[in-house]
């Protein structure tokens, strides 16, 4: 009996305590920068697309919501002809970000992607591509990789030694 009264009193005292609810649309919760939300495609510091269309994200995706088609421009630089993410399937696991060798695909702390039509949840490349480098400022895959593209020959990348002339090694 006493414990019942004490329970009643304790519950009553909760009337004067702070409410836990976050009034969401007016009051946004803090999301850490590494929150796994809407997926974006980032660009080099120079403004070029980072994605090299290697298909690793599409392979890593457990729900197969990424589809893309690789192509090359006239300088030999690979890029996706189209890049499509079906967000009605995406589970925001972040495996694509983990798999990406060029930091192109990244997850952002944004989750407000509600749509009235399911079709609108299929994002095309122009919807995904953003103007900046995202979470990896200053990184440029083509500048550090040894791959030869137009305007950058073998051995001209950062920290890359010039290629050894095999003939000079002959005895």
């Amino acid at each position: 009996m006493l414990s019942i009264l004490r329970t009643l009193w304790n519950i009553f005292l909760h009337a004067f305590q702070r409410r836990e609810t976050v009034q969401y649309p007016e009051e946004k919760p803090y999301l850490p920068p590494r929150h796994k939300g809407r997926i974006i495609l980032t660009r080099d510091p120079d403004g070029g697309e980072r994605c090299v269309a290697c298909y690793l994200c599409a392979v890593a995706c457990p729900v197969a919501c990424i589809s893309l088609q690789a192509t090359e421009d006239e300088t030999g630089r690979r890029y996706p002809e189209f890049f499509r993410i079906n967000f009605s399937r995406c589970i925001f696991c972040g495996y694509c970000e983990e798999a990406c060798p060029t930091y192109a695909i990244q997850l952002t702390p944004d989750f407000e992607m509600a749509e009235y039509h399911r079709q609108n949840l299929v994002y095309e490349k122009e919807d995904l591509l953003m103007s900046g480098p995202g979470k990896r400022p200053g990184y440029n895959f083509w500048r550090v990789s040894g791959v030869k593209i137009g305007g950058k020959d073998k051995g001209e990348a950062e920290n890359e030694a010039p290629p050894v002339d095999l003939h000079s090694l002959l005895p």
């Binding site: 009553f12 909760h14 305590q17 702070r18 409410r19 836990e20 609810t21």
Partner: peptide, 8 residues
Amino acid sequence: LALWQDRY
């Protein structure tokens, strides 16, 4: 009920 359960 919400008041006593710290909700709105």
